[in-house]
């Protein structure tokens, strides 16, 4: 089966405050193809154009020039239904908990589906389902969202977007300000949405370790352009170029490179702790075994 393209960007440009002294080109000829069901990480330093980019994907911002196609249809066509696009492409902003406003958690999550035109009952069902999938304990559903912890609030905010049943989920730094366990919970939740519902996920992140652990593909933005686009291994192999633009590779990638410089034969493509461990065990036990003159099965 040919994979279908859910979103295509064709030479998208975005200029803030055009024809003024403050004119800034935030996106420069960005062309991308986003396949159905991909889990993509978007990285780039502050001001590289990441947030501008994702706000184009559900039509919140309009490109100054260029085209965006959603399932083959140009979203800037006059008869294209942007409302429908926003239902199908869900966007979770930075610090989404600042957008909670209802008196109960349940009402807050109902707001999106109700706005989509669903009946009260249907919206309620969606809310239950969404709150269950983010793992919020049921006894909290009718409490004020403002009494929750930071991590819980964020899960409620994400549930608000999930309740709209988007096909594409875009999250702008969903783990900023969370403690490590909260960080893992949110990312595990997103990974599960991707795995179980086949959702296309775009994750904007400043944590290279998180990106390396979860995504299949990384898009690196720099000065409004796509600088690199590939698997985590391919992208982090360019760690020196990444550093030059204010980014970095995961810690373990540096470790592996340094070991190779010291003469140990290990896999410099490792980007996660698990991959590094596997490669190191192989290299080290291999060495020890060779020195002891023991035959290692599978190694000739």
């Amino acid at each position: 089966m040919r994979e279908s393209m859910s979103i295509i960007l064709d030479k998208v440009n975005h200029i803030y405050s055009p024809d003024t002294a403050y004119q800034i080109q935030a996106l420069r000829d960005v062309s991308l193809e986003i396949l159905d069901g991909q889990f993509i990480g978007i990285i780039g330093h502050t001001g590289s154009g990441k947030s501008t980019l994702i706000q184009h994907l559900n039509g919140l911002m309009r490109a100054t020039s260029g085209h965006i196609y959603f399932h083959g249809k140009d979203i800037y066509d006059e008869d294209f239904d942007l409302r429908e696009l926003r239902n199908r492409v869900g966007l979770v902003f930075q610090y989404p908990e600042h957008q909670l406003f209802e008196t109960t958690i349940f009402d807050d999550v109902c707001f999106g589906p109700k706005n989509q035109g669903l009946s009260k009952d249907e919206a309620g069902l969606r809310a239950f389902e969404a709150l269950r999938s983010v793992g919020l304990p049921e006894e909290l559903y009718y409490q004020s969202p403002f009494d929750l912890s930071g991590g819980q609030k964020r899960r409620v905010a994400i549930a608000g977007v999930l309740a709209m049943k988007p096909e594409v989920l875009i999250l702008d730094e969903p783990t900023a300000g969370l403690d490590p366990a909260g960080r893992d919970e949110i990312l595990d939740l997103v990974a599960r949405m991707h795995r179980e519902r086949g959702m296309t996920v775009l994750l904007v992140s400043h944590s290279m370790e998180d990106v390396a652990k979860y995504v299949q593909r990384i898009i690196v933005m720099n000065q409004g352009q796509v600088m690199l686009d590939g698997t985590p291994k391919q992208v982090f192999a360019h760690y020196k170029e990444l550093e030059a633009v204010g980014l970095a590779a995961p810690q373990v990638t540096y470790l592996m490179h340094e070991l190779v410089e010291r003469g140990l034969s290990v896999d410099t493509e490792a980007t996660t702790v698990e991959e590094a461990r596997a490669s190191l065990m192989e290299a080290l036990t291999g060495l020890v075994a060779a020195r002891r003159d023991i035959h290692v099965p599978g190694k000739d």
Binding site: P180, A181, L255, L280, L284
Partner: peptide, 20 residues
């Protein structure tokens, strides 16, 4: 306590537990 350790510390710990 819902905290973590640096990546290199985790990796070092794994290697140590594997007998290195």
């Amino acid at each position: 306590y819902r905290l973590d350790v640096p990546q290199v510390t985790i990796l070092a710990d794994m290697l140590r537990q594997a007998g290195l």
